[in-house]
Amino acid sequence: MATMTADRVVDARGQMCPMPILSLAKAMRELTSGQIIAISATDQGAKRDIPAWAEKTGNILLETVEENGILTFYLKKA
């Protein structure tokens, strides 16, 4: 269950690698520091990709929720 509210929601369900991180990188550019984004994905690689992306880009992964095969990541823009 979603436990936090996001300033921006990105639906990347059905997108295959590398589109979820591309969608995330695109959307993140439009946010300001401290804002929260929620991205949902069904790509099996996303589980490791999104944390790796956050680590490399310096943005903060706050929470990951898995529900019915859908992964939702909450990230805060650095």
Binding site: C17, P18, I21, L22, L24, A25, A52, W53, K56, T57
Partner: peptide, 11 residues
């Protein structure tokens, strides 16, 4: 193209 896109997304 996937390698290039992934790297670009990673900054």
């Amino acid at each position: 193209s996937i390698m290039a896109t992934g790297a670009a997304a990673m900054g």
